[in-house]
Write a protein that binds this DNA or RNA. Structure first.
Lengths: 220, 220
DNA sequence: TCATTAAATACATACTAATGGTATGTATAG
DNA sequence: CTATACATACCATTAGTATGTATTTAATGA
């Protein structure tokens, strides 16, 4: 193909193909050749020119996919005229959660933890790094400081809620029979969160219902 | 090496070596050759005679390691002269938990979720299959039936508590700075569990302290 | 009870296809 | 002319297979 005038388009194509494959087939289940085959006419040389390893492709693909969501959240939480408690509820409101679900749903990840083990591991790590240490804990601490949240163990509460929200409420890696079960999980999670001082808001059930619909939109 | 009179010894040696390597280096990080190299004089032929794939070795190794623990638990829960609530507390008592921790500790798993992603996925799946659907939920339902437990969402509560206990309270895949943090997690978990009707017992903190000691015994 | 033999088992050896990655060549943009 | 954006050809490692060989076990016969 010679040389492209706009290499960033090539990078984008690679990342698009890679993300879809990684989600659908897992990390180990996706070979570089699989990615190459999906990139019409391109060869392995192109990929290894732009990325130095499969791992780097994987990370870049996910970072890119998550970027707009992270940015949006950052913007939301930056607003100064909200209490910590309000921000917390905002984090679990539809407008914050749905875009993320939508992204995942578009990728059709395999509902098999072992096959998706690397994705699961990233979500797991993400639940600590990004959610707990990153933005959830600061919001809780903000709420404690401004008196809107009463939580004895902010760090632990943040980690636990984050883990449950990411790996349990969202049926990314295990199929969930029906909407009812998902709503039950949401209610259960809200109850548990409330027990350690975190009020996720009254609309949790409505948010969850929306999540279910977005997730099962494609009907698979 | 010709032929062994007691092939089950060979199988045991293979599984011992495999388990250690899988825990220490992860599934993908461990090659069949790694296992062979640890089995003095043995070759790949031996391995593929007894097991048909790497996956099968992995599963067999873990099933074997877990067998005595599963059996012990089964025996404990079989006793008819206990209420559901009592059995539940028993499940989180030191004598039930410590042997499992001890096993994990001996294997020195890598405290890196991505590197240990397959182990993590197994723990994740196990939290649903074994704990929630397997024995935890029945115990809770037993408690509901005999009036010793009041829980509105037994299935959800079982899943959530199981997940948190296996993937958060136990620092299998992420290092935990100190004993205090682990105790804080335990207390937080107990509080959350209580909120959905599950009393994990008053000794949770003592159990947790023991877990910490067993886990950090080797000092790494 | 014991030697002989046949068959099944427990490995070792040699090989294959696929994989992640590299080295190098070549054409095009700046 | 030089740096970049690729393509091509190649390599080492990997999981897995095909096959060969030695030894144990079972069957047989006396």
């Amino acid at each position: 193909m010679g040389r492209n005038k706009y290499p960033e388009e090539t990078v984008a194509k690679i990342l698009d193909a890679a993300l879809e494959l990684f989600c659908a087939q897992g990390y180990e289940g996706t070979s570089i050749q699989d990615i190459v085959d999906r990139l019409d006419g391109m060869t392995k040389g192109a990929i290894y020119h732009h990325f130095k390893s499969k791992e780097e492709i994987f990370n870049a693909a996910f970072d890119r996919a998550m970027a707009p969501i992270v940015e949006r959240r950052r913007a939301t939480l930056g607003a100064g005229n909200m209490t910590g408690a309000q921000k917390l509820k905002r984090l679990y409101a539809p407008e914050s959660v749905v875009p993320q679900i939508d992204l995942w749903a578009r990728m059709h990840p395999a509902a098999d933890p072992v096959k998706s083990s690397r994705l699961l591991a990233m979500q797991y790590q993400g639940s600590f790094d990004e959610s707990a240490d990153g933005y959830l804990l600061p919001v809780i601490e903000e709420g404690i400081a401004d008196g809107s949240i009463a939580c004895a163990c902010p760090r632990e509460a943040a980690e636990a809620v984050s883990l449950l929200a990411n790996l349990w409420l969202l049926p990314l890696f295990r199929p969930l029979e029906n909407k009812g079960r998902m709503l039950a999980r949401a209610q259960c999670l809200a109850q548990m969160a409330a027990a350690v001082g975190l009020d996720l808001g009254n609309e949790v059930l409505q948010t969850t219902a929306q999540i279910w619909d977005v997730w099962n939109r494609a009907g698979w």
